[in-house]
Design a protein around this nucleic acid. Structure first.
Length: 528
RNA sequence: GGCGCAGUAGCCAAGGGGCUAAGGCGGGAGUCUGCAAAACUCCUAUUCGGCGGUUCGAGUCCGCCCUGCGCCUCCA
């Protein structure tokens, strides 16, 4: 059970949570998580004190990663960061099923080696996730590197009389596992009645599934007690999760479409093998990403690749869109959804950027951390308005925590950030209007920035980009626009409104929006 | 056919027995600004697909129905 042989382990980082009032000082909310197995929310405590063990079903790397793959990866990376903020150590494992029928088929079509093809797409997937700002798992085990573990598990199942070999294939005997169907709510009789495919004659029951497949000519194969072959689908997740996390780990995640048969079969294999239950304490399934009304899937050919999206949209915006819907709900992905998300996302970010600007202008300390002593001092120094704002600020960690603790409700957590943005904009504007803000007020706003950075930046990763100007534009564009704005400023100083408006209107026609602020004019690219 | 998930304002979307049904987008009215944009303030669901039931009390629980989606064959 030692994970030291992990192929592509990234070193777990420390949570690095700030001290003081930014961390949760009041009673943390009990973490409640929806469990597919019980079809209800249950209070979560890790089986091993202080340590949360998670296995998230990864991908079969035979094509480019699409946005549907990003959802679970993003969710689990956010969940792990939240749990770490709550003070847990987290071990996250995500597999690559790099030995598989589809990979073999694709490789054959292209005249490529299947293992190489899988390796290439695995890298592509990891790169796409990195660019989405998704913090990696601790281990990314691959089937091709765990064949001995899988063979050992299959052998164990045969010894216990739960699996049987026929002509080089090994099948799991579902009749030997009375709980079969407990995850998906299916009954064995119904499943067999509904069988729509032609069953392999050699199987004892049509529902028996392959643990090991005998090699056909030209397929990648490994030696085994049953002759050359390769693992069936399902067994790899049982073998690798047990290897890296041990039995009875905390969360097993994956898309809703994996509930049956994949996870059902995993439970059957694993619990039959260990003789103990539960194999997994919480089964967590995310809703699918739809294109229009239909599921996005490679077989339907309606996928949007992450590379395409990243070429057109900033990663934090894509994360914002994905996190705006609770993870269990289906999410419709479309240009209009993207356009609407952009408007909300921009307001959140512009609140942060203006706050940063304010702090620069007033010598504030961006992200200044504060202890309870500071809060008390601020409260004494602030006027009524300031104290009211401070009260709202102090409640943010608690409210954010309550949202996330309730089945990792990122949509509700984002609402907390929108509240913070509105209140911060209001308070900041009021200070600007009155002029000469009190030092305590500036410090409080420094604290607000720290909250944005912790929750919006560190934990959810929805902040960034979209500064004034347009970062992706060449410096020449920036300089030219700046030149026009200088000319316009001079016109405005002369009260030559006609010229000033003409410059603004013409730029607008070119897709550049000019906004005048007390600190000068700024520009950005229009939506587009 | 079986199993499962969902239907909340014009749109997106939280909430899942009892405080005025979060938040975002859009729309309306105001404040500020040369005008605009942005921002802020107020307004925008007597009601949660339909019909019954349980309960002192139901978007919230139960039953039936309607609609959409997913799984039962590879899928995150």
């Amino acid at each position: 059970m030692s994970p030291k042989t992990a192929p592509t382990a990234s070193s777990p980082q420390k949570a690095g949570l700030p001290a003081g009032w930014l961390a949760l000082e009041r009673t943390p909310s009990p973490i409640r998580v929806y469990n597919t197995l019980s079809r209800s929310k249950g209070v979560f405590e890790p089986a091993e004190a202080g340590h949360v063990r998670i296995y998230a079903c990864g991908v079969t790397p035979y094509a480019e990663a699409h946005i549907g793959h990003a959802r679970p990866a993003l969710i689990w990376s956010v969940i792990r960061k939240y749990l770490e903020w709550r003070g847990y150590r987290v071990t996250l494992v995500q597999n690559f099923t790099d030995v598989d029928d589809k990979i073999i088929q694709r490789a054959r079509e292209r005249g490529e080696d299947p293992v190489e093809l899988a390796a290439r797409y695995s890298e592509q997937y990891l790169s796409a996730m990195r660019r989405l700002g998704i913090r990696g798992a601790d281990y990314y085990p691959k089937v091709s590197q765990h064949i001995p573990d899988i063979i050992a598990m299959i052998s164990g199942l045969i010894e216990r009389g739960i699996a049987y070999e026929v002509g080089g294939d090994v099948f799991f005997d579902v009749s030997r596992f009375p709980d079969y169907g407990k995850l998906s709510g299916q009954r064995l009789e119904e499943l067999m009645a509904g069988t729509r495919f032609e069953a392999d004659e050699r199987k004892r029951s049509p529902m028996d599934f392959a643990l090991w497949k005998a090699a056909k000519p030209g397929e990648p194969a490994w030696e085994s007690p049953w002759g050359p072959g390769r693992p069936g689908w399902h067994i790899e997740c049982s073998a690798m999760s047990l290897k890296y996390l041990g039995n009875g780990f905390d969360f097993h995640g994956g898309g809703m479409d994996l509930v049956f048969p994949h996870h059902e079969n995993e439970i059957a294999q694993s619990e039959a093998y260990t003789g103990q239950q539960p194999f997994v304490r919480f089964w967590v399934h995310n809703g699918l990403v739809n294109m229009g009304a239909e599921k996005m899937s490679k077989s339907l050919g309606n996928v949007v690749s992450i590379d395409e999206l990243l070429a057109r949209y900033p990663a934090p915006l894509l994360r914002f869109l994905l996190l705006s819907t609770h993870y269990r709900s289906p999410l419709e992905f479309s240009d209009s959804a993207l356009a609407e998300a952009t408007r909300g996302w921009r307001r959140l970010n512009s609140a942060v950027h203006r706050l940063e600007q304010f702090l620069r202008d007033h010598g504030g300390l961006p992200g200044a951390l504060a202890g309870p002593g500071d809060v008390a001092r601020w409260r004494a120094e602030l006027d009524g308005e300031g104290a009211r704002y401070l009260d709202g600020l102090v409640s943010v960690p608690e409210r954010f925590d309550a949202a996330m603790a309730d089945d990792f409700n990122t949509a509700a957590a984002l609402a907390v950030l929108f509240d913070l943005a509105r209140e911060t904009n209001g308070f900041r504007e009021q200070l600007v209007r009155r002029g000469k803000p009190a030092p305590a007020a500036v410090e409080v706003l420094g604290g607000a920035l720290a909250l944005f950075r912790l929750f919006g930046g560190e934990l959810l990763g929805v902040l960034g980009a979209e500064e004034a100007g347009a970062p992706d534009q060449p410096a020449l564009v920036d300089n030219l626009v700046q030149l026009l704005l200088d000319v316009r400023r001079e016109a405005r100083e002369r009260r030559d409104w006609a010229t000033a408006d003409r410059i603004r209107d013409r730029l607008r026609e070119l897709g550049i929006v000019v906004e005048d602020t007390p600190a000068g004019s700024r520009w950005r690219m229009a939506d587009g």
